[in-house]
Design a protein around this nucleic acid. Structure first.
Ligand SMILES: [Zn+2]
Ligand SMILES: [Zn+2]
Ligand SMILES: [Zn+2]
Ligand SMILES: [Zn+2]
Lengths: 148, 148
DNA sequence: TCCTAGTTGCAACTCAGTCTCAATTATGAC
DNA sequence: GTCATAATTGAGACTGAGTTGCAACTAGGA
């Protein structure tokens, strides 16, 4: 896997150690699809018989982000989610506030407009968050039926 | 002021009472410019000699939002900010992660693209968050000078 | 005026995330 | 392989934003 080398590389470049816990975390992350949270990872560690403490997980998530392996999604009410980014490119999210479904979207035009907005203000962008909240097709349908 | 009537209206439509505390909160909100936080409001209450408890403020901010008087900005690390929305239209934000400066931007094109993305997925948008993080012109300049 | 549902302050609580610290371990030098 | 050392770990205490239960209070309609 490319992610493992990438992480090993990142660690050695920063004089950090490849510990059992870091391997376990990386494995779990690579084996989890979609937009997952800390509790899902912790449950995964237990299921796999390789427990890792909450503190250690929290200490290492930023490292995985710096290494470009995962991306953090800061959602409302402090519910953070993460997603694998190796081999993927940037995208933004549609979040259903009824069922929690997270869809992805991508728009070159929006990215271009953002760059232009920044350029005009002399603002140096280091990142952005673009989330659309609402009701997914299924939930919207359910609501329509209920309300008439 | 239009905001006072609007709030009074919202309250009576929902069988809620216009209390001294609600008047104080609304006054403080109307008298605060920019993107303010809960502690700024609490300090304002004290300064004005009209204290309102933290609990009461937290209980009423959602009411002001529902009434369309203020808007909540959910920023990273759980630092919520609010801004007056009466007589203004929707906009999004550029946030300097060095000095905390918050700039505003507005793009019809981005809004149009969002609508299009939602339409294509049968997604019913109820709101969105679009934040650009980075370094404002002043901070970017300072950094350039420092690094050479 | 009286009644009652809505409101308040306080303090206890929740929840995500961070920090401290003693014990452990990866890694590089010899 | 052995050693030295700096990095890392888990446990649990802690933090800070926000919420909640509750008894006392109050706006506003009958
Ligand atoms: Zn849904
Ligand atoms: Zn995604
Ligand atoms: Zn700045
Ligand atoms: Zn604004």
């Amino acid at each position: 896997m490319q992610a493992i080398e990438r992480f090993a590389d990142f660690l050695s470049r920063n004089r950090l150690k490849m510990t059992r816990e870091r391997r376990v975390i990386l494995d779990q992350v690579l084996g989890t699809r979609g937009h997952f949270d800390v509790d899902q990872l912790l449950a995964g560690f237990r299921r796999a018989g390789h427990p890792v403490s909450r503190a250690t997980l929290y200490r290492n998530l930023p490292r995985l982000i710096e290494a470009g392996i995962i991306h953090k999604l800061e959602m409302a009410h402090g519910q953070a989610r993460y997603e694998l980014m190796v081999g993927r490119h940037h995208h933004d999210h549609l979040i259903c506030t009824d069922c929690g479904l997270i869809l992805e979207f991508e728009s070159h035009d929006v990215e271009r407009i953002q760059d232009e907005v920044c350029r005009r203000r002399g603002f140096v962008m280091t990142g952005h968050t673009h989330q659309i909240r609402g009701h997914c097709a299924a939930c919207a349908g359910r609501r329509r039926r209920r309300r008439g």
